[in-house]
Design a protein around this nucleic acid. Structure first.
Lengths: 213, 213
DNA sequence: TGGCATCGATTGTTCAACAATGGTAGTCGG
DNA sequence: CCGACTACCATTGTTGAACAATCGATGCCA
């Protein structure tokens, strides 16, 4: 059954992001290959891709483990986000197709908030920011964001207070969308700057509490 | 002889960037593995990494070939550069260690210009912009730039007028550095914006002449 | 000339083997 | 009792061979 490759990489990606393997977990080639029903060589090719994407850490002769973002990683991720997201939003047109994605993400977030499904709230928030990056129409920036968003999800996984982590931002997303539509990109970008500062502080706070407390 | 892996990836990277395999060249697994003295499986792992970095294009069942950037790729690369480079320069401190790298790159460029070694001029220009990105102190942004810079080099390889491509920018780099030191980041960033517009136009001009001329 | 079946070369994947490395457990000496 | 050393063992790194699946080309036929 050839061409399992891409599917395998994506399947592994999703499993890791979904938290099936906790951050830091060692991924044994032999047992995982057996579990997934593929050969070691095929699995290793997938590992290389995931390693390049930052989802998995590869240490020579010690195998790969699910990435476990450090505080420095979180700081860097937010730094990169501040470079890309506000600029993309600021320069965007309200007629851009991705605006529909932004709206859908906001509505999904509000619906999931109602049901107290924090996990889905988090996904919706991510989808919102993914849509913002999509406004830039740049495959390379989208790829960057896809990778750092995946890493960020790993950080989220280690924080077991998803409500505090995701719930407050649904309203901010709604507000940002309305600002964008009513007052244009630059005004919304200003909001986004504050949003990212707040989000970073929230994550870092929970994170340091987790690590040394 | 284990641990050939990373070395292999880097060796292939350099060979491709240096133009040993022209853009578009098909890289046969069997013959290349034999040539490099590694097994097919090992080579395939390296291919996955290079493919993820955009240096090589992988088409299922048709193998990998050296990437051959399209006009759309060049446009996107410059779009990404405009997002990252001016912002990094604008926010930077003149005391940042990377400033020394900028100066070295400028001087290298001027020296190579004297010797009419356009290839090295191009490398020095790239090093200059690499240093600008380094000002941001962000591993993830550096990785993004490393990848798109490699892709851009592939585009340069296809244009056989390296003098027009690289020579004019040495003086602009020097000027930008002086502006940065004398007037600070924002003023230099403004120059960089114009620089990138000019550079993109230069590349695209040569490129379209090449493709349908 | 244009459509079609066949063939050949290449990729996708698996398996088995061995070398090299790193961690671990057990041993020895203090 | 504790720390350093050693031998072992599980795992990774890499190879080579094998076979299935696919793509492109070759040559055939109308």
């Amino acid at each position: 059954m050839p061409d399992v490759e891409d599917t395998l990489t994506n399947a592994l990606r999703r499993r890791i992001i979904d938290g099936e393997f906790a951050p830091g977990t060692r991924l044994s080639e032999i047992s995982l290959a057996e579990k997934l029903g593929v050969s070691r060589n095929t699995l290793r090719e997938a590992f290389r891709v995931l390693s390049e994407q930052g989802l998995v850490e590869h240490v020579p002769h010690r195998g790969v483990s699910v990435a476990s973002p450090t505080v420095a990683d979180v700081v860097d991720i937010y730094r990169a986000r501040r470079y890309v997201e506000p600029a993309a939003l600021s320069a965007a047109s309200p007629l851009h197709p991705a605006v529909a994605m932004m709206r859908e993400a906001v509505e999904q977030g509000e619906a999931s908030l109602e049901e107290r499904d924090w996990r889905t709230v988090g996904s919706a928030n991510m989808a919102f920011h993914d849509a913002i990056v999509a406004l830039a129409d740049s495959p390379r920036l989208e790829r960057l964001f896809r990778d750092i968003a995946a890493e960020l999800r790993l950080a989220f996984l280690e924080i077991d207070n998803p409500e505090a982590l995701h719930a407050p931002f649904v309203a901010l997303n709604r507000s940002m969308l309305e600002t964008f539509l009513a007052q244009g990109g630059p005004a919304a970008a200003a909001e986004l700057q504050d949003y990212l500062v707040l989000s970073e502080r929230t994550v870092l706070g929970a994170f340091t509490r987790l690590r040394h407390g």
